[in-house]
Design a protein around this nucleic acid. Structure first.
Lengths: 221, 221
DNA sequence: CCGGCGATTATACATATGTATAGATAATAA
DNA sequence: TTATTATCTATACATATGTATAATCGCCGG
């Protein structure tokens, strides 16, 4: 009778009952990341393949994830959280309207080169795969957009510039940066700086556009 | 499209020797298109699957394409050519700076809804799959960008507006429209108009931005 | 009419996959 | 200690894949 009761009272202890897990979710996630690459998308990994890479029997996979899709969603959420943190920090380090674009794009591209496989999950796997998969990526994009939108309004106030439809500005910038990032992923190193400078100009055009409209220098329709 | 290729694609117009091909490349391409959908990307189709859908023996596939990738590349080129034509026509029907954005985006979205599977090839399959596959999509994007760039310069002259870095403007607009199109693909019908209006505003921001910079109303340094 | 030949199929094989079932192993509770 | 139990492995099965090989079909030139 108190067996059940004590289980319910000590859920942490329950996880350590019986044989200790020799393999963890993290190990499986790491194994999956080993397998992805420029020509290998997460959604094409097989359960057996991941298990093999992790050094466990195929069936052991089930103890940790229902299927490869669930693994992928976990990885996507991790990648998204990590990217948002990096960018958020970069944006808060810079406060003038001009340098904030540069430092944010630079932070993004740095993350892009240093965490290629990780970033690939967000940049180029959002359009194929299961619904769970696609909406996990979409969710991260929207988080990103929302945070950017808030910062845009904050910056506009701080710099005393206008801003027209900050929601759409945030969306434009996010989608553009992610799209350009996706192609930049397999760019040779000597072209990277150039691509980054181009991207900065592109983002500035959007910023200039929204300001010009808000400040009535041009009519929009 | 080039003539040699289209001749090869028309077995009826060819002098037959040997058994008449009961199946054509087009049949296989059509079969492949039947199989793709919101949750099925072309790069995941198996040779046997396509052959089954087309009603031929697996091995017969080889008479027409080396592998599924080659089939996919052909389809991508077709989709790209068709889209570029539709958009090109739309852009040349409208000449004033304002309506050209609207009519181009409208043409794009119309093509998007009416040729969903076709468009999916360009919008959401460009980031996964083989190199041949990815660069086929990239090639279409660049064609698209180049044509847009030329038109942007032409329109700027005609409307006597400035334009800063038309190449980057074309690239921004293309990538943005394609990225937004990709998410718009699985949008319920009642949200489509809204998405389109938003996209028009986004594109206009870029246009206003490049003009404002070119006309010296703001400095971009 | 027929022989040739190219398009197509049938059969087969090695390999891969997801997962069901049952047994082995080891950490913990008694 | 011994019993319990979560974790992992071994084995197995039905099914799928790409493609090699050889046989079959039917049109065309003769």
């Amino acid at each position: 009778m108190n067996e059940i009761a004590s289980d319910e009272l000590r859920p942490a202890a329950r996880a350590h009952q019986g044989r200790r897990a020799v393999i963890s979710k993290e190990d499986l996630m790491a194994a999956a990341m080993e397998l992805v690459g420029p020509n290998r998308s997460i959604s094409t990994l097989s359960l057996r393949e991941v298990a093999r890479e992790a050094g466990i029997a195929p069936n052991s996979f089930y103890r940790h994830f229902r299927d490869v899709d669930e693994l992928a969603v976990t990885l996507i959420e991790q990648a998204g959280a990590s990217l948002r943190q990096v960018i958020g920090e970069a944006r808060h380090r810079a406060t003038t309207g001009r340098s904030v674009v540069r430092s944010s794009v630079e932070a993004f591209m740095e993350q892009l080169w240093s965490e290629q496989k990780y970033m690939q999950l967000l940049l180029r796997e959002g359009t194929v795969g299961s619904d769970a998969f696609k909406s996990a990526v979409e969710r991260q994009l929207v988080y990103f957009e929302d945070e950017l939108g808030v910062d845009l309004v904050r910056l506009a106030k701080a710099n005393n510039t206008g801003i027209y439809r900050p929601d759409l500005v945030a969306r434009s910038i996010t989608r553009l940066v992610f799209a350009m990032g996706a192609s930049a992923l397999d760019l040779p190193k000597e072209k990277r700086r150039n691509a980054m400078e181009d991207l900065i100009v592109m983002v500035r055009m959007i910023v200039v556009g929204t300001q010009s409209i808000a400040e009535g220098r041009v009519k929009v329709d």
